[in-house]
Every structure is written in structure tokens, then in C-alpha cells.
Amino acid sequence: MVKYILKRCLQALPVLFGATFLVYGLVFLQPGDPIRALCGQHCPNEAGLDIIRARYNLDKPFILQYLLYMKNLLLGDFGTTFSGRSVSDIIATSMPNTIHLGLIAIAFEIILGVGIGIIVGIRRGSFFDSSILVITLILISIPTFVLGFVCQLVFGMNLGIVPPTVGSSTDFEHMYMPALILATGSIASICRLTRNSIQDNSYADHVRTSYAKGLPRYQVTLRHIFRNSMIPVVTYIGADLGALMGGAVLTETIFNIQGIGNQLYAAIQRGEGTTVVSIITLFVIIFVVTNIVVDILYAVLDPRIRYGK
């Protein structure tokens, strides 16, 4: 097992380098001069701009810029923004908000997605089952930004039920609507996955054998249908963490949450290569780590899978 985890970590290295290199290249290719844009209309002399460029290594060729950046990154230095703030400081202040948002979203996924999925899985073919199938299909097809803006307008502005933006207050009351919107697509997918998984398992031979053993229905359902059905669902929820990160960029921008996604969006607009790449690197690390955790979890749930043997 340890050997397997080590192997997976090593495999993550090329992913890390590849992803950072790509993102760095994309930011570099962005048209316009970020330093000039920084000063706006009152531009100082060219010599002054050059000094700033030199400080951010922007005067050097692309490859060298990237290598210098990676060197600092490996030493634990995420670099500084054009305004002189250290990127690690930005991450430290904005990350908790994103984690908070993500945790609420995952809680919704589990409670609503798995919960409703189980109910319709058991009562397959009912009216409730069919309606859930239609509703989830609609939810999967609505893009987050449409749903976000519509909900903000209707529930936040017109009806005034929920605060329309989050801003600096990050309590549950402010956060639950953005989190719900962030989780919507996943809730629908998880709901369908759970439903299908439960239905498939209900017809398994060993389930019939469990009934034949004399087990009452609730025991068969709990021990022999649920447990087996949760294997693909858990895997999906784990892998979905990465998608949540991406979705957070949109949700945080719409609802003005001071999270990492919002910072990433701002940094892209400012053309701040170092900040963008640092945040993306963080995303990649989180993605790789959650994937390893999911694989381990998978082996715990399903004894047939034993890695590295």
C-alpha cells in the first residue's frame, strides 16, 4: 500500500510540471503588457518600467522566467503580486472561504444527492422516481452561471429571501445559496448514479440469496444493497472535488465571495502570471491528492481491490 501511494505521488510530478508549464505559457501569451496596464494613464518613464519588469523577471526569456518561478516554488516561495503582496498571503486569506463553500457544497451533495438517490432507487418506477429523473436531467443541463444569476436575481433581489452577495461575511446564512448552486450539477449526477447503482444491486444474485437466508428486508437493504451501491458513489464524490474547484471560480465571482476562485479570476484579468500559476498549482495538488485518497477509499470499500500486490 505504501509503495502504491509513493508511486502515485511520483506519477503526480509530471502532471504538476506539465500543468504549471501550460498555464504559465498561456498567461505569457496573453496580449498586452501587464506592467504598462498596471500604471493606467499616468505612465512613468520607460526606465522605471524596466526596473519593475526586472523585479518580476519579465525582462527574461519565457523559459528562464518559468524555470526561475519553478525554483522559487519548490523552495516554498509562491512569489509576490504586482502590488507587492505575497501570493501565499493571498492564498492563506482566501482559501478558508473557498474550503467553507466547498464543504457546504459537498454536504448538500451527500444529503440531497445520495439521500434522494436512495429513496428513488428503492421506489423505482414510482411517480416520484420519474419526476426526479426529469428534474435531475434539467438541472444537469443548466450551466452554473445561468442558474447563479437567476437565483441571485429572484431569491436575492426580488424576493429578498437570501442575501444576494456574500462579501466579507461567510456564515452559513450567506453561503448556503452559492454552495447549493455550485453543487447543483453534482447533486443531480450523484442522485442518478445512486439510483442506478441501487437498482443494479437490488437484482444481484447475492441479494436474492440474502433473502433466502431468512434476512428481513431492512437488513438486506442496509447490508447488501446500500454498502455495495455506495462504492461508485464515493468514488464519484471524491473525483468531483476537482470539479468543485473549477466551479468555485464562477460561483465566487457571481456572489462576490472572497475565495481563491475570485482571486484567480482577478489575477487572470491583471495578467499576473505568478499568481495565476501559483493558484493553479494549488488546484493541481489538491486534485492529485484527492484522487489518491479516493483510490485508497475505494480499496477500503471494495475488498476485491488491493493495490500493489
Binding site: H206, R208, T209, A212, K213, L215, R227, N228
Partner: peptide, 22 residues
């Protein structure tokens, strides 16, 4: 439920699929 197991036992057909793998 009372009958199965203690009254009538069953040995099913396919040993590969009739035990819960987990």
C-alpha cells in the same frame, strides 16, 4: 422471512455471484 433459512434453505446456482463480495 420466518420460513426462509430455518424452514426452507437454498443453495443457489452460481457460486461466483451469490456471495456478497464486500
Amino acid at each position: 422471512v420466518a420460513l426462509r433459512g430455518s424452514g426452507i434453505g437454498l443453495v443457489p446456482q452460481d457460486p461466483m455471484s451469490n456471495l456478497n463480495p464486500v
